[in-house]
Design a protein around this nucleic acid. Structure first.
Ligand code: MN
Ligand code: MN
Ligand code: ZN
Ligand code: ZN
Lengths: 155, 155
DNA sequence: TTTCTTATTGAGACAGCGTCTCAATTCGCC
DNA sequence: GGCGAATTGAGACGCTGTCTCAATAAGAAA
């Protein structure tokens, strides 16, 4: 947390912004959640703890944190944007199950290297590399197979 | 177009659905546009030609076409979903410029193979593999460099 | 410390976009 | 042609994220 606070304050100063209680509160809150969470849920969690930060401010500061690289922003389903705090530069990607909604994370350095190579080839300067797979997870696949081949009571 | 109509009708029959004029119209319309387009613009284009298909129906049938694989659905910016007709299994991915909004497409078989390999390793059955890069395109990079290093009138 | 400038916040209105509802229509089968 | 179900049209609706603007507070300067 010292690490992140320092990085955030550094970014703030560097950009002629101001460090505020609301900013510290949003930073602490997002770093206390270790799953993907949307802005409204994060806001509700804060209100639940008695932290009076407005909805607009939570949205604004999550985006600020994303800009400064402490938080990542994903759209894993079409309904809402999810945020997640970074963990020391450990970038990962996602597989999303259509059936159960489960999100599986994976890290693959080669995939990233290859994306960077493509960018280089096009003279494109990337800020954000995303790989996303939508499909059916192993659990749902097994469940479907079990249902399909040997249902408890015959059809 | 015969190809796609046949594939669509086959999918329709296979799923106990019905072929309608609205479906044919949406299919023809999306295949007549060769850039990314959103549902409302496609709807407007149809109305412009005198095709009376409702907004909801355009949305519904674009999603149906996406389900059956004739159309792909992307969210290249956070504002809206864009659709694009497939071209004989030629899957591609996108780089989006933050500054000018330009979208650069690229095809890379290795990247796809690698994604499939990761899925296999996780027992994940993919329907949809997406790679998206957000950053700064070569044109904007050059424009920025020109502005930064040698402005017409001194600072 | 007090003063001053201005970035930030809060509260709610607003907007975009996609979904839903339900009566009317159309499809496909008999 | 008649029937039952799938599809459509029109608009209301809901969810998310953005914007507005007056009030507040950060932080530089005095
Ligand atoms: Mn994640
Ligand atoms: Mn494309
Ligand atoms: Zn699943
Ligand atoms: Zn550009």
């Amino acid at each position: 947390m010292y690490q992140e606070t320092a990085a955030f304050e550094h970014y703030i100063r560097d950009h002629g912004l101001r460090m505020t209680n609301a900013r510290r509160a949003v930073l602490e809150e997002i770093f206390s959640h270790h799953e993907h969470i949307d802005a409204d849920r994060l806001h509700a969690a804060m209100r639940g703890k008695g932290l009076d930060v407005s909805r607009a401010t939570v949205y604004r500061n999550l985006d600020l944190l994303a800009d400064c690289g402490l938080v990542r922003k994903y759209r894993l389903d079409r309904h809402r944007v999810l945020y997640e705090h970074m963990h020391a530069g450990m970038e990962h990607d996602h597989m999303v199950c259509r059936e159960c909604g489960r999100v599986v994370e994976f890290v693959n350095r080669d995939l990233r290297a290859q994306q960077e190579e493509i960018c280089r080839a096009h003279g494109f300067d990337p800020d954000d590399l995303t790989v996303q797979v939508v499909g059916c997870c192993i659990t749902c696949k097994k469940a479907r197979a079990a249902r399909g081949s040997a249902p408890p009571s015959g059809p």
